[in-house]
């Protein structure tokens, strides 16, 4: 439960931190860290407008998306000390597919609108999600292989750094998870969340027709998603040391903050990719994950 609460807290400052970092690096004063939340509260007070061409799917999708993300957050354990609020054998499968379910609903709600833009965005999002999916599975499979457990909580409890393959795992999975979260959350270099150009958008174009309350839910969902990935990275790092609880909590939050700032820095000094190279980029990340898994297989003498 502790990690879920921490993730929620971090989600609050996450979008603001990225924005402030980017502003500082471009020499501007930038908005307050709380600005994204001022926007979300403003939107929460408003009603939503639904196009007459949409059906019930468009109306429920943002709610389902936020719900599954909250449930997914409940799965995350806090290092090896506390299990997640929900945990059972094989829960990592449900965790991954909960995230996919939220995305699935956003994609079909985009198709539901029937606009030329949104179908385009849905198509791109579906493609890149499909290509990145092996990466997260390879990370999970490697964890299962290293620990012999199939529940997120058990995995982190059993995980230890005794073998060289564990160190390999920590280093590579941190990198893969960072890139994975950039892709999943539609940040540079795959997508540009700040752009106003519909034709180049991936995620933003799918929620063009959402307004008011629904838009606020989408915004909260994005922040939460980031924070969940940050939480997983924090867990992977924290199992390196055995520390008192208060220090671990501090480091957990610190890692989330560093994660946000890293994204801000990465986005400040590079241009986004040409759309056609996106799939190559995504596949490369998945490829690294596969190589990592195979190396662990070899090192653990399972082959």
């Amino acid at each position: 439960m502790l990690s879920s609460i921490l993730i929620l807290i971090c989600a609050i400052v996450f979008p603001g931190l990225i924005a402030v970092t980017k502003a500082k690096f471009s020499g501007r004063r930038g908005p307050s860290v709380w600005q994204p939340w001022y926007d979300i509260f403003r939107l929460l007070k408003k009603g939503s407008i639904f196009s007459t061409t949409t059906s019930i799917i468009f109306q429920v999708a943002p709610v389902i998306n936020i719900l599954v993300l909250i449930i997914a957050a409940l799965f995350i354990p806090f290092t090896n000390k506390y299990a997640g609020f929900i945990h059972f054998e094989g829960d990592f499968l449900l965790f991954i597919y909960l995230l996919a379910l939220g995305k699935f609903f956003i994609i079909i709600s985009a198709l539901d609108v029937g606009s030329g833009f949104e179908g385009m965005g849905a198509n791109r999002e579906a493609l890149f999600s499909m290509l990145i999916e092996p990466a997260i599975f390879m990370i999970m499979a490697a964890l299962v292989l290293l620990t012999g457990q199939s529940s997120l909580a058990e995995m982190f409890t059993t995980f230890n750094l005794d073998s060289s393959s564990s160190i390999l795992f920590v280093v590579l999975s941190c990198y893969i998870l960072l890139q994975f979260s950039l892709i999943e959350s539609s940040r540079l270099p795959i997508d540009d969340p700040k752009t106003h150009l519909e034709l180049t958008m991936i995620h933003e174009v799918m929620v063009l027709d959402n307004s008011g309350f629904d838009m606020a839910l989408v915004g909260i969902g994005n922040a939460l998603k980031f924070s969940i990935f940050g939480g997983i990275i924090a867990n992977v790092v924290l199992i390196l040391w055995e520390l008192p609880l208060w220090q671990e909590v501090l480091i957990f939050i610190l890692i989330e903050i560093i994660f946000a700032i890293t994204i801000g820095v990465l986005e400040s000094f590079r241009a986004r990719l040409k759309m056609i190279y996106n799939s190559q980029f995504v596949l490369t990340i998945s490829g690294i994950a596969v190589v990592m898994f195979l190396m662990i297989l070899l090192l653990e003498n399972h082959l």
């Binding site: 980017k22 690096f25 471009s26 020499g27 501007r28 540079l188 540009d192 700040k194 752009t195 150009l197 180049t200 986005e267 400040s268 000094f269 590079r270 241009a271 986004r272």
Partner: peptide
């Protein structure tokens, strides 16, 4: 042009 390719540094410096 820098804004359109999401190159933030160029975008803000040229703007300034």
């Amino acid at each position: 042009m820098c804004t359109d390719v999401a190159y933030q540094l160029g975008s803000s410096v040229f703007n300034a």
